Simulated scan of single mutants.
Amino acid sequence: MRYCASCGSEYRDDIEQCSDCPGSPRLVEASEMSRRGLPLPHELDQRVFARAGTTDNPLMVEVFTGMLEERDIPVLVRAGRSGVVDKLTTGNLLPWWEILVPEEMRERAALLIERERAQEAATTDEAVRAAEEEERETERSSPPPPAF
């Protein structure tokens, strides 16, 4: 077998150039791939990813992803097929986004996501209380409107 050193595609021995890559680079033998430190297709990542959490909020997807990546947990985000139309036509009630991590890191990631979710909820509640208090203070300190 021969391989493209750019994309790693595998070809029959009678093929000379990669048909997938721009510029159609010449193919090399497995020994050349090894010499260059490039993995063969069967040596690529074989991890199994599992659901660590879900969310309907696109901003929280970014928050969760960033938080997990900061802790060196690889993340894949998969959009579910959910929405008003899907629920009406298919009954599909999947969450909008699934947060997937390597299976062996799932429990740790799920715990981190729940902690982040609880912290976000507490921050939101605190912001609501502060806004309500500020509104009450503004109402008390502002003079009444002039009578006509």
Results as ranks from 00 to 15, higher is better:
residue 108 R to F: 02
residue 73 I to N: 00
residue 115 R to G: 04
residue 24 S to H: 15
residue 35 R to W: 06
residue 70 E to A: 03
residue 98 E to Y: 08
residue 20 D to V: 04
residue 43 E to V: 03
residue 50 A to P: 01
residue 90 T to R: 13
residue 31 S to K: 10
residue 22 P to T: 04
residue 91 G to M: 12
residue 29 E to L: 11
residue 90 T to C: 10
residue 17 Q to E: 07
residue 16 E to R: 11
residue 107 E to W: 05
residue 38 L to I: 11
residue 125 D to Y: 04
residue 90 T to N: 14
residue 32 E to R: 10
residue 51 R to C: 09
residue 11 Y to G: 07
residue 14 D to Y: 08
residue 65 T to F: 03
residue 91 G to H: 10
residue 100 L to P: 00
residue 52 A to S: 06
residue 95 P to R: 05
residue 34 S to A: 15
residue 49 F to G: 01
residue 53 G to P: 01
residue 91 G to Y: 07
residue 33 M to V: 06
residue 64 F to T: 00
residue 78 R to Q: 15
residue 50 A to E: 12
residue 47 R to W: 04
residue 40 L to P: 04
residue 86 D to E: 13
residue 40 L to V: 10
residue 21 C to K: 06
residue 94 L to M: 14
residue 86 D to M: 13
residue 107 E to N: 06
residue 115 R to Y: 05
residue 106 R to C: 04
residue 95 P to N: 05
residue 107 E to K: 07
residue 56 D to N: 08
residue 44 L to K: 15
residue 36 R to F: 09
residue 86 D to G: 03
residue 40 L to Q: 08
residue 97 W to C: 01
residue 97 W to I: 00
residue 70 E to M: 03
residue 43 E to Y: 04
residue 52 A to I: 00
residue 73 I to G: 00
residue 43 E to T: 04
residue 40 L to D: 15
residue 121 A to M: 10
residue 116 E to W: 01
residue 69 E to W: 00
residue 97 W to G: 01
residue 14 D to C: 08
residue 83 G to M: 12
residue 115 R to E: 15
residue 92 N to Y: 07
residue 23 G to Q: 05
residue 111 L to E: 10
residue 37 G to A: 09
residue 100 L to M: 14
residue 107 E to V: 09
residue 87 K to P: 02
residue 25 P to I: 02
residue 58 P to I: 07
residue 15 I to N: 03
residue 72 D to S: 14
residue 123 T to M: 14
residue 48 V to K: 15
residue 14 D to Q: 07
residue 92 N to D: 15
residue 90 T to P: 02
residue 39 P to C: 06
residue 111 L to T: 06
residue 111 L to G: 10
residue 54 T to P: 03
residue 15 I to L: 04
residue 86 D to P: 01
residue 95 P to D: 05
residue 82 S to V: 02
residue 20 D to R: 08
residue 39 P to N: 09
residue 101 V to T: 00
residue 39 P to R: 08
residue 32 E to N: 07
residue 108 R to A: 04
residue 57 N to K: 08
residue 88 L to P: 01
residue 52 A to G: 03
residue 103 E to M: 11
residue 78 R to S: 11
residue 50 A to N: 05
residue 79 A to N: 06
residue 39 P to G: 12
residue 14 D to T: 06
residue 102 P to N: 15
residue 115 R to W: 03
residue 29 E to W: 09
residue 91 G to R: 05
residue 77 V to H: 05
residue 37 G to Y: 08
residue 93 L to A: 14
residue 51 R to L: 05
residue 63 V to I: 14
residue 121 A to F: 11
residue 50 A to D: 11
residue 46 Q to S: 14
residue 84 V to D: 15
residue 122 A to C: 04
residue 96 W to E: 09
residue 98 E to I: 03
residue 117 R to P: 01
residue 89 T to W: 12
residue 100 L to S: 08
residue 119 Q to S: 12
residue 88 L to Y: 10
residue 85 V to R: 12
residue 121 A to K: 13
residue 42 H to A: 15
residue 28 V to K: 05
residue 102 P to G: 06
residue 63 V to F: 12
residue 17 Q to Y: 10
residue 85 V to W: 13
residue 74 P to K: 05
residue 84 V to M: 12
residue 10 E to Q: 13
residue 83 G to R: 10
residue 47 R to Q: 15
residue 78 R to V: 14
residue 58 P to K: 04
residue 46 Q to M: 06
residue 19 S to T: 05
residue 112 L to M: 07
residue 68 L to A: 01
residue 91 G to N: 10
residue 22 P to S: 15
residue 38 L to C: 11
residue 118 A to P: 02
residue 115 R to F: 02
residue 71 R to K: 12
residue 50 A to H: 03
residue 29 E to G: 13
residue 54 T to G: 03
